[in-house]
Design a protein around this nucleic acid. Structure first.
Lengths: 345, 345
DNA sequence: AATGTATGTTTAATCGATTAAACAAAAAAC
DNA sequence: GTTTTTTGTTTAATCGATTAAACATACATT
């Protein structure tokens, strides 16, 4: 990046005027600042000639605004978050913002790190997919008066803006759907996490059983650690199948759990849905291409992402507006993996 | 972001010294600048007390370095690029760089846009997955002396740093593999693009036929437009199957083509590999989970991404070092979708 | 005592833009 | 023909950090 960049000063010199005039003209303030018409034309022309591009660092330093949003997600290589990221990117761009993305790997520590780095880079605000135990980070942002919106997950005890899914309802619907399709022993594989959305998925699942007169068996619920899902899912599925009440249907609480679980189910040679029906959260091409298309919980990704950006940008304009807390509804997309159970006659 | 941020000046005032001293101390230059030991300790302590965080805008404006890399890819929601992005993000972070990602959707125009925006934001350099007809952008960057590396694709006629795949070899291997597995009528679905890597894939495919004494039939090669792949792939596959020499195996030149193609193949009720064998570029969980695991061309993603970052950072230190041009080899992962053809006896 | 050398610290310019305020000249008002 | 107003332009401070150069002292040397 050698060739001397063109600055306001260069234009000013060439036009024989002060930088102030150039700044006024190029910011469309000729009227308010009553710049002479001839000189304005001249300045514009020179700017074009030299292909002037303003230095946003300088602009930002002066204005205190960077027109940059920090997006913190769990992992950009996870299709769910990649999709969200794309939507956020596009929506932000439409509004003149640039997005910096960071992956936290569900680790509070990494997320802290990202917040610090992004703050040092003076992002105007954050869109955050929170990790477990990151409440203090949120409190910190609140205390420092930093604009942010929580996405996909939120902390019910902390008053913040957020956009997430009605996880309880979604899980409940998933359970009811399986029950109505004739499945009786329904398992759930979730993450071992105190995050609200995860707890809600578990609660929704259990409630769906209860409400339909099915008594829940502890062996049906497996909570696996983020970092050990490969092994734990195997053990979990083994135990579910070998339990006193072997499961005939399985709900996966996230995309990654589903992928990992399905691989193992394939390896076991189990047939979906005859041996095991499946419903999963998340969505991706895999679900379509699986030999038996997977029933999934359709999340309104586009709306989630767009709304998050919208709320954040609105917040940047009106810092003290009331907190917007949005729970969106998911839609169950019934496919072959949960088709009505074949009854043995 | 209200609460007044702590600046060097605040520390200076509290410590009753000039900002210069503070700057020296906090940058570990106490020795060179012979700052008094006591005062240094005091400054450090106050900085910690106030939780001082330097303003990178100011730093960058002064130094001309932002420690930021612009990453331009086709689409972050495509798993291939999302994976690359993650690797780049991690590697950059290790080196103290932050990454700004932009999706070009394979459009030269959008890519121009991103380059301009990122340059205005003073990124130190770029990692670019080029779109078709974006040569002038590359020339522009060269002319302006901007540091950059091309990733995954390159222009053979323009001398630049690049890291990409030996596409010719990979496609050739794919073809040979199918032939050796007993398939005779092998089709290729590629993008309609003059991009070198795509042309090389086509060339490699054709060469594999020629070298094995199979004469190529035009109906076997379908080049579909980026924006019309859904329809064109359907037509393409239909035509290949209905041609005078119906294909019994198909190579997909990218991940997205494969996904789209497989959906249609499923819809047609074709059995892989008995009705149609498959080999695909790209990689993703889908390939594992498909009822018949898909043979694919394994690209050394990790190395691609890391090397790109490494070359860029090295270039930032030594702008005039020789151009590094790296072609990495892919590895064919043979799976069931291309298992030896069952011979009709 | 006069001079030289360390040792500590401050001053002020700089990066590239923005913008309130000061200034100058021309036009309008009385 | 002054005074006032309008119009057009420049000056200079500012954002927050960095750093060469200037400036003070203290200490050492002869």
């Amino acid at each position: 990046m050698n060739k001397k960049k063109v600055s306001l000063k260069d234009i000013a010199e060439k036009a024989q005027v002060s930088t102030a005039l150039v700044s006024y003209v190029l910011n469309g303030k000729e009227k308010e600042s009553r710049v002479g018409h001839e000189i304005a034309v001249k300045i514009k022309q020179i700017a074009k000639e030299l292909n002037y591009q303003p230095n946003y660092l300088a602009k930002s330093l002066r204005s205190g605004k960077t027109q940059t949003i920090g997006l913190i997600i769990a992992d950009i290589s996870n299709p769910f978050f990649a999709n969200i990221a794309r939507i956020v990117e596009d929506e932000a761009k439409k509004n003149g913002y640039t997005v910096i993305i960071g992956s936290s790997d569900e680790k509070a520590e990494k997320s802290w790190d990202l917040i610090t780095v992004f703050l040092n880079r003076q992002v105007d605000g954050f869109i955050i997919v929170s990790s477990e135990n990151s409440e203090e980070q949120i409190e910190y942002l609140i205390e420092k008066n930093v604009a942010f919106v929580l996405l996909d997950r939120h902390f019910p005890d902390i008053p913040t803006h957020f956009v997430s899914l009605n996880s309880y309802k979604a899980a409940f619907d998933a359970g009811v759907h399986l029950i109505q399709s004739g499945y009786k022993n329904i398992g759930l594989i979730a993450y071992k996490s105190q995050l609200f959305h995860m707890q809600e998925r578990i609660r929704g699942y259990r409630e769906s059983l209860v409400e339909n007169g099915i008594s829940f068996h502890p062996a049906w619920l497996k909570e696996v650690g983020f970092d050990t899902i490969d092994e734990e899912i195997k053990v979990g599925i083994d135990e579910m199948l070998a339990s006193a009440f072997p499961v005939d249907a399985l709900i996966f609480a996230t995309y990654r759990l589903a992928i990992t679980g399905l691989k193992y189910i394939n390896a076991l040679g189990l047939k979906v849905p005859d041996d095991l029906a499946i419903v999963s959260f998340g969505q991706a091409e895999v679900f379509d291409l699986y030999y038996c298309p997977i029933t999934y919980v359709l999340q309104p990704m586009e709306e989630l992402g767009k709304t998050a950006v919208e709320i954040l940008i609105h917040q940047l304009k009106e810092p003290h507006a009331e907190k917007r807390q949005i729970l969106m509804e998911a839609q169950l997309m019934a496919r072959d993996s949960s088709r009505p159970k074949a009854v043995i006659s």
